[in-house]
Nucleic acid binder design. Structure first.
Length: 466
RNA sequence: UCCGGCGUAGCUCAGUCGGUAGAGCGGGCGGCUGUUAACCGCUUGGUCGCAGGUUCGAGUCCUGCCGCCGGAGCCA
């Protein structure tokens, strides 16, 4: 036994420590059970794992009185010896030689030793991170993020930073938040309109809805890049899978066509799922037990199988034959696939992820490459059960004239995209990319029903606390 | 934004045909226990979302508003 035991995380104690070692633990009290026989059990959690460490305090401790009354949520520093636990429930426990109550927690601590609704927990987002579920979500989200960087870094992609503030109203993909330094109570005016020429950027500015166009700039210089950044949508969407501020990963790859893009997207997703299964087994077991009883099985089966790949046209043919589905929106070639159609494909027809490609040109963005049939573009959506679209991507239109046509057909001003067009004038190259929604990925993996519960501080219409 | 549902104790909910409000958990007190969602007893706790209306009487019925949840659209 040394005088200064090293600070050890609960996760490491439960995984590796041997009886006899002396450690110091720092964490928060999850629950306390006091026995009148002069023994108090304190469950300490430090966020490193789902499981708590059982700390055993004996009456001989000088501050035993305070320890026996410790409230849920209190912060403590415990020094002691790891011993084998004589009782069921845990292999190891910490026999306390010293417990320092760093911050007590009064009896109005909002988190009780029972199940709370996620809805209620959202109203105390500053404390919900201390619950089992949100701790587990935080660790899985971290692993997904870590794995994404590893995936691209080990394959030679550059992590690039696209701007958050942008002038481009990117193809009307959802409403944008405007950014201004003007006094909104009294903006400068000219000819009856707000004079944005006198704003800080001397032009209208927005929060980015995508980093893709800038990523294309970088990809056509260095080959393969990816962004990993917050994205902003001002759309008044109030659903279980939309946020006003969310994180998106957008790889962009030069010399890449749609076939290879599909290979990358599939490999990428499987890699993330496999990594979470491998490195967060305890948390995944929790989600499987408490949130979605098929969580682990779903991930394992996806990792071990091939994604289905069908064209939009084939998808429409399948859906048109599915009379028993009794769709609210009838299916015909040329229409957008509705949620019910996507779910039919992923949950009924194939029961696994489906990549749908080559959508009608009119339904998709101007930058997608026009196919030889002239009617479709080289787009792909990766659809998964329950969530729907988790990835949206395409091969980009690299031919200058075709891109001009696409823009003209949508009434877009080429002047505003002069630099984007320049990429096609000088050394153009086939390239492709996609966007992966981080929150939707975490949602799919964990089985969490609402996207607001897989991001620590959700922003959605009417939701800006914390 | 549209459609539907729900707002009752700190939390999760019940409340029948309209007759002045209940349980479990939590908190407090006591008992018991190498305990572990501990257990047992007692106890505490409410402007029934807000504002109107109908009625002898409204948690309950009606209208408006606010909030939340679910579905749809938009998308990742």
């Amino acid at each position: 036994m040394t005088d200064q035991p090293s600070i050890v995380r609960v996760r490491d104690i439960l995984a590796a420590e041997e009886p006899g070692s002396c450690v110091q633990v720092q964490g928060w009290v999850r629950t306390r059970r006091t026995s009148k026989a002069g023994l108090t059990f304190v469950e300490v959690n430090d966020g490193s794992s789902l499981a708590n460490l059982q700390v055993v305090a004996e009456q001989a401790l000088p501050n035993y009185e305070a320890i026996s009354k410790l409230g849920t949520g209190a912060s403590v520093e415990v020094r002691g010896e790891i011993v084998s636990s004589p009782a069921a429930g845990q292999a190891m426990e910490l026999r306390a030689a010293d417990i320092r109550v760093v911050g007590d927690s009064p009896d109005d601590y909002p988190l009780q030793k029972k199940r709370h609704s996620f809805e209620y927990l959202r109203t105390i987002a500053h404390l919900r991170a201390r619950t089992n579920t949100f701790g587990a979500v935080a660790r899985v989200r971290n692993e997904v993020s870590r794995c994404i960087h590893e995936y691209f870094q080990t394959r030679g992609y550059l992590y690039v930073h696209s701007p958050i503030i942008t002038a481009i109203d990117a193809e009307g993909a959802g409403e944008m938040f405007q950014v201004t330094a003007l006094d909104l109570e009294n903006p400068p005016r000219r000819d009856g309109h707000v004079d944005y020429g006198r704003d800080l950027f001397e032009d209208r500015a927005y929060l980015a809805v995508s980093g893709q166009l800038e990523a294309e700039i970088m990809a056509t210089a260095v080959g393969g890049v990816y962004t990993f950044a917050p994205t902003f949508r001002a759309e008044n969407s109030n659903t279980f899978r939309h946020l006003s501020e969310f994180w998106m990963i957008e790889p962009e790859i030069a010399w890449c066509d749609l076939d290879r893009l599909q290979d990358i997207a599939e490999d990428f997703i499987k890699c993330i799922f496999a990594s979470v299964l491998d490195r967060c087994p305890e948390d995944m077991r929790f989600f499987n037990d408490r949130i979605d009883s098929t969580a682990i099985e779903t991930l394992e089966s996806i990792v071990g199988s091939r994604f289905v790949r069908i064209s939009y046209t084939e998808a429409v043919e399948i859906l048109e034959k599915a009379v028993e589905a009794n769709f609210q929106f009838p299916v015909s070639w040329g229409m957008d696939l509705q949620s019910e159609h996507e779910r039919y494909l992923t949950e009924q027809t194939f029961r696994k992820p489906v990549i749908v490609t080559n959508y009608p040109r009119e339904n998709k963005a101007f930058y997608m490459r026009v196919n030889d049939d002239g009617k479709t573009v080289a787009a792909m959506d990766v659809l998964v059960p329950r969530i729907g679209e988790i990835i949206g991507g395409s091969q980009r239109e690299e031919r200058y004239d075709r891109l001009r046509e696409q823009m003209a057909a949508r009434g877009m001003d080429p002047e505003a995209y002069w630099w984007y067009l320049d990429l096609r004038r000088y050394g153009t190259v086939p390239h492709a990319g996609f966007g992966l929604g981080l929150e939707r990925t975490v949602q799919f993996i964990t089985g969490m029903a609402n996207i607001r519960d897989v991001i620590p501080f959700p922003r959605a219409p009417g939701l800006l606390s914390f």
